[in-house]
Computed example of a mutant assay.
Amino acid sequence: MTGLDSKLFEQIVSFRRELHAEPELSWHEYKTSDRIAAFLDQLGIPCKRGVAGTGIVANLPGKHDHLPYVALRADMDALPIQEETGLPFSSQVPGVMHACGHDGHTSMLLGAAALLAQEKDRPAPIRFLFQPAEETGKGAKKMIEDGALENVALIFGGHLDRHFPAGTVAVTDGPVNASTDQFHIKIHGQGGHAARPHEAIDSVVVGSLLVMALQTIVSREVNPAHPSVVTVGHFEAGTASNVIASSAQLDGSIRAQEQSVRESLHRSIERIARSIGELHNAVIDVTIDLGTPPLSNPPDTAELAREAVRNSLGEEALRKLEIANMGGEDFAYYMEQIPGCYVRFGSVLAGKEGFPAHSSRFDFDEQALNVGATYYHAVGLAAGRRLLAQGE
Rank of each mutant, 00 (worst) to 15 (best):
M1C: 02
D5M: 00
K7L: 00
V13A: 03
F15H: 00
H20Q: 05
P23R: 03
E24W: 01
K31N: 08
I36F: 07
A37D: 03
C47T: 03
R49W: 06
R49D: 08
G50H: 06
T54M: 06
G62M: 02
L67M: 02
A78Q: 07
E84V: 12
T85G: 12
F89G: 09
S91W: 00
S91E: 10
P94R: 04
P94G: 11
A99V: 05
A112W: 04
L115P: 07
E119G: 03
K120D: 13
L129N: 04
F130R: 10
Q131N: 01
E135Q: 11
A140K: 07
K142H: 04
E145Y: 01
D146V: 02
G147P: 08
A148V: 12
H159N: 06
F164L: 11
D173P: 10
G174H: 04
H184G: 14
G189Q: 15
E199C: 11
V205N: 14
S208I: 02
L209V: 09
M212W: 00
L214D: 13
S228G: 06
V229D: 11
V230T: 12
V230K: 05
V230R: 13
T231Y: 01
A240D: 14
A240F: 11
A245G: 04
A248K: 12
S253R: 13
S253G: 08
A256K: 01
S260E: 15
R262P: 04
R271N: 10
I272Q: 07
R274Y: 09
L279G: 01
V283A: 15
V286F: 01
T287E: 15
D289H: 15
S296F: 02
V309K: 07
A317F: 00
G327H: 07
F331P: 05
A332F: 00
I338T: 08
R344A: 13
F345Y: 14
S347A: 14
A350F: 11
G351N: 07
F355W: 08
R361D: 15
F362N: 10
F364V: 07
A373G: 12
H377G: 03
G380A: 00
G384W: 02
R386V: 05
L387M: 07
L388R: 06
E392N: 11
